[in-house]
């Protein structure tokens, strides 16, 4: 049972790109290069416009560090929440059959389509002080989510969770069901099968989903500012700080964006490095 995931990992994460050898065909190469230019050039624009001479003292401002720390903490906690709720949800969608499953899957992607600001308003209508659930939360437990750091996590998780669910569901559907069937015939319960076979099998998919989810949460703006508001130290994340800096000082906005980009790229690259090394041996 413990060895079963190994071949799958090896296949998915082989050191060489799989496929037919030979030069890449131009109908793939040309759009791919255009795609790279399209995605990378705006980044180059930021780098060119960055006020490099004043960069150090701008970075030393306490508000920058405060916003950065808040962003990293909330995005990480939001990803944790998404993993806790999203992986079981993906399993439910991929491994069980019940009426309305297709409708449910469509509903889960709603936060992807919804403009985030509208998502924020929707959250207020449900979890706000006068919201359907929120007024009850406040009267029964004295909990009020808007304008708190917990509110930031809620907004980020709401927007980011579909990324995780869709990735994990895809991984579950692509995973070979024979390992799970074998475990079941050997007498493992469904929970044991999930824990010992399914989860290791889909680990790459879960990680990819978590990374997407974290990145989306880190960049979240609309739902956060609408639901949690904007107050330095408690709810002002980096994207909010960038937006407000843009109102008066576009150069500061460029600096803040670069900080956010650099930190996220470093973390994602570092994470991947560690993870690949651990799996590869």
């Amino acid at each position: 049972m413990t060895t079963s995931p190994t071949p799958v990992r090896g296949r998915a994460r082989g050191p060489e790109p799989a496929g037919v050898p030979g030069r890449p065909p131009w109908p793939l190469l040309v759009p791919a290069l255009a795609g790279i230019a399209f995605l990378v050039l705006p980044l180059a624009g930021l780098l060119v416009r960055a006020p490099w001479s004043t960069l150090p003292q701008r970075l030393a401002e306490p508000q920058v560090l405060q916003a950065l720390r808040l962003s990293l903490v909330t995005a990480t906690v939001a990803t944790g929440v998404c993993l806790l709720l999203g992986v079981p949800l993906a399993w439910l969608l991929a491994r069980t059959d019940f009426p309305g499953r297709r409708l449910l899957r469509a509903l889960i992607t709603v936060p992807l389509v919804l403009p985030p600001v509208v998502g924020g308003v929707a959250l207020l209508l449900v979890l706000g002080r006068r919201g359907l659930v929120g007024q009850w939360l406040e009267s029964a437990f004295g909990i009020s989510l808007p304008f708190t750091t917990a509110g930031v996590v809620v907004a980020e998780a709401f927007v980011a969770m579909p990324f995780l669910v869709i990735s994990v569901e895809g991984a579950l559907r692509a995973a070979d069901p024979r390992f799970e069937e074998a475990a079941a015939t050997l007498g493992a319960s469904r929970w044991t099968v999930f824990r010992r076979v399914t989860l290791p099998l889909i680990a790459p998919g879960v990680l990819a989903g978590a990374v997407l989810c974290w990145a989306r949460a880190l960049g979240e703006f609309g739902a956060t500012i609408t639901f949690a508001g904007n107050f330095p130290g408690s709810t002002q994340t980096m994207p909010l700080a960038v937006y407000l800096a843009l109102e008066t000082d576009p150069e500061a906005a460029v600096v803040l964006s670069l900080v956010l980009l650099a930190v996220s790229v470093l973390i994602l690259a570092g994470l991947r490095e560690r993870w690949v090394n651990r799996v590869g041996g």
Partner: peptide, 16 residues
């Protein structure tokens, strides 16, 4: 409790 990004967002918080 919040410093909103524009006046309409500020109004929304009161309206809700």
């Amino acid at each position: 409790v919040t410093l909103e990004q524009d006046v309409k967002a500020t109004l929304t918080k009161a309206a809700l």
